[in-house]
Structures are given as structure tokens and as C-alpha cells.
């Protein structure tokens, strides 16, 4: 049983980085302008998180070669619509819409000034459903709101949908907006205000040499501590070339002899986007010529859980991955 996931497309909508390789060497952060990236049409009344997610989703679907017209940011997929699933991950996505509605009601002491056009934004699944509508994705549609591990958790469910035959391609998009509500609620000076998307699907390198997978992921695992996580991943630490820590920085130091990798840029509080950002950072390193296997770990003490996956360079013998995942599944 294969426990590997193949990354066939990547989309990036981050302040200072608008594509995969820019993640390694970001520009001075400027807020992402969704209208400049995918056109103004269809963005009206969408909240900030949805707009950012639509940008990253478009880039990832195009990168995976799934769109009927790759240059049209409103294009539907060219493959069977029911074979493409969407999984969105976000924790703070619609907090601004909910807070604005509450403010309106409290200030006017009535619902007279509440705008019905805002209704979809009050349900936290708005991101995944808008991505499905815009790009014509009729497979399973899931929204993961699972705290700091959300991005990597989304990858686990992508693997589950693929393995169960519920989808042939899964668009995973993680997004967190930055605004006063999020800063205050999350207690952070700045949230990420960006989105990262990946398409996971069948390995393409045998059928399409122009479009090899950009990274290969092991089955994600969860555990109460990082120490408990490693045996569950079945990881051979001597075969791991670096690891991404849960804080986005390397505050946990070495795991065994494995050195930490800095994301090298202050992205703001990434929340559920961190896991996908780690994977895309790894894929960018591979594209720049790096080889080997990297370990990505998300989680925080308040959530009380950690989630990890191994990210392997494409087209190399599965040194660490051969053992990974299998022991953990009974």
C-alpha cells in the first residue's frame, strides 16, 4: 500500500512571494493584491481569506496542468469535475465577517443594517465552496479548522480521499488573513495575510516527463509530543537532511543530529498555513537542486498536539520513506 502523496502543483499568494521559488528569497512584504493576480471579476463581497485562497488555488491548478485554459483565472478544470476534491484549511478565515456582523447588530440594536450579501461569509466553509464554484470542482469539499496543525492535517485527509478513490486530484489550500480582529483574537502583532495551495495527485513523472512531481510526501502523523511523533512517522533520522520546526523557526534545535531549517523570513503568524509553507519551501529547495528528505512539524502547546510529514525530493530512491507510515498503521 502506497502511503506517498505526490505534489503536482503549487500556488503561492504571500506578502513578498508570488510563486514557489520566491519563498526561498522573499521580496519586501507588500500585501497580496488579488485583483492584480486573478482579475477583479468574481471577487466582490468575498472576504479577504477567500480572495487570497482563490489566487493560490488558481496558481496551483494551473501549475498542475488541470485548467482548461491556463491563462484564464476563471477557467474550470479540464478533467472530470467530480474527480477533483477541495480541502481548505483556515482558523481565522471568517472571524472578520462574524465580528463585523456582531458590531453592526450591537451598534444599531437591530439587524436592519446587516447585509444579506455577507451570508456565505458567516459559514466557515466559504473558502472551499468558493474555490469549487470558481474552478468547477465537484468532488468532496472539506474545510479543516483544526488549529496550528490544520495545514498538515489537510494533507492527511487529501491522502485519505485519494486512497479511498473519492478523488484523483485534491486541491489543498491553507489561508489566514491579517486584520485587527485576527491580531486581537490571536494575540499577535501581525498575522500571515496569505495563502499557499498544493495539488496532490497521481505521480505524473512516468506519464508526463514535462511535469514531474515537485515533492513527495509521506503520510502525516499526529502525536501529543514531538518525541512521540518520530516513531509514528517511522522516520530513520540518519536519512533526514533537515527539519522545519513548529514555530516557523528553529527554536527546538537539533532532533538527533538533524539540523533545523529556518524559513528565513518573518511571515507573521502563519497558523494553519505553516504546514503547507514548510512543504513548499522544501519543494523550492529541491527545484534549486537540493536532494534528500526533510521533516516538517507543526503544532503548539495550547493545542497540545503535533503533526508531521516527511518531504522528499522527487526522483530519488525512497531512503527514509520506505519505512515511513507503515508501522504506524495497524
Amino acid at each position: 500500500m502506497s502511503e506517498q502523496l505526490f505534489v503536482t502543483g503549487i500556488g503561492v499568494a504571500l506578502p513578498g512571494a508570488d510563486h514557489r521559488d520566491a519563498v526561498l528569497d522573499p521580496q519586501v512584504p507588500e500585501p497580496v493584491d488579488p485583483a492584480a493576480r486573478i482579475g477583479r471579476k468574481g471577487l466582490r463581497y468575498k472576504d479577504r481569506a477567500t480572495q487570497l485562497a482563490l489566487v493560490a488555488a488558481y496558481e496551483a491548478l494551473r501549475d498542475a496542468g488541470l485548467l482548461s485554459d491556463p491563462d484564464d483565472a476563471k477557467s474550470h478544470v479540464a478533467v472530470d469535475a467530480s474527480s477533483v476534491a477541495v480541502i481548505a484549511a483556515s482558523n481565522y478565515g471568517n472571524l472578520d465577517s462574524v465580528a463585523a456582523t456582531i458590531d453592526t447588530i450591537q451598534q444599531d440594536r437591530s439587524t436592519r443594517l446587516v447585509s444579506p450579501i455577507n451570508t456565505p461569509n458567516l459559514s466557515s466553509n466559504v473558502i472551499a465552496s468558493e474555490a469549487a464554484i470558481r474552478y468547477g470542482l465537484r468532488g468532496p469539499n472539506l474545510t479543516v479548522c483544526n488549529g496550528s496543525t490544520g495545514g498538515l492535517d489537510a494533507l492527511r485527509w487529501a491522502g485519505s480521499l485519494l486512497r479511498a478513490g473519492r478523488a484523483e486530484h485534491v486541491l489543498v489550500v491553507a489561508v489566514e488573513p491579517d486584520n485587527d480582529v485576527v491580531r486581537s483574537f490571536a494575540g499577535t502583532p501581525r498575522a500571515l495575510d496569505g495563502a499557499v495551495a498544493m495539488v496532490l495527485g497521481p505521480a505524473r513523472d512516468e506519464v508526463d516527463t514535462k511535469r514531474p512531481p515537485q515533492a513527495v510526501l509521506s503520510a502525516t502523523q499526529r502525536a501529543a509530543t514531538i518525541d512521540d511523533l518520530l516513531p509514528r512517522l517511522g522516520v530513520d533520522l540518519t536519512a533526514v537532511d533537515g527539519w522545519y520546526g513548529p514555530g516557523g523557526a528553529a527554536e527546538h534545535g537539533l532532533i538527533g543530529q538533524v539540523r533545523p531549517i529556518e524559513l528565513g523570513h518573518d511571515w507573521g503568524t502563519p497558523s494553519s498555513v505553516l504546514g503547507l509553507l514548510q512543504c513548499v519551501h522544501a519543494a523550492a529547495r529541491f527545484a534549486a537542486g537540493a536532494t534528500g528528505t526533510l521533516l516538517a512539524v507543526c503544532g503548539d502547546p495550547a493545542d497540545g498536539v503535533y503533526c508531521g510529514t516527511l518531504v522528499e525530493a522527487p526522483r530519488q530512491a525512497s531512503r527514509a520513506l520506505t519505512a515511513a507510515g507503515h508501522d504506524a498503521h495497524r
Binding site: 459559514s123 466557515s124 466553509n125 469539499n141 472539506l142 474545510t143 479543516v144 479548522c145 483544526n146 488549529g147 492535517d153 485527509w157 499526529r222 502525536a223 501529543a224 495550547a302 493545542d303 497540545g304 498536539v305
Partner: peptide
């Protein structure tokens, strides 16, 4: 997740916001 873990000792917890 945190509440389910605290009460039932479960750590493989998942919240899906699917309307």
C-alpha cells in the same frame, strides 16, 4: 481538539467546518 483531548485523552482530533 483541546477540549476533547483534555476530557477523553484523545489526540487524533479533527474539526471539519462543513456547514
Amino acid at each position: 481538539g483541546a477540549a476533547v483531548r483534555s476530557r477523553f485523552g484523545a489526540w487524533d482530533t479533527h474539526t471539519f467546518s462543513n456547514a
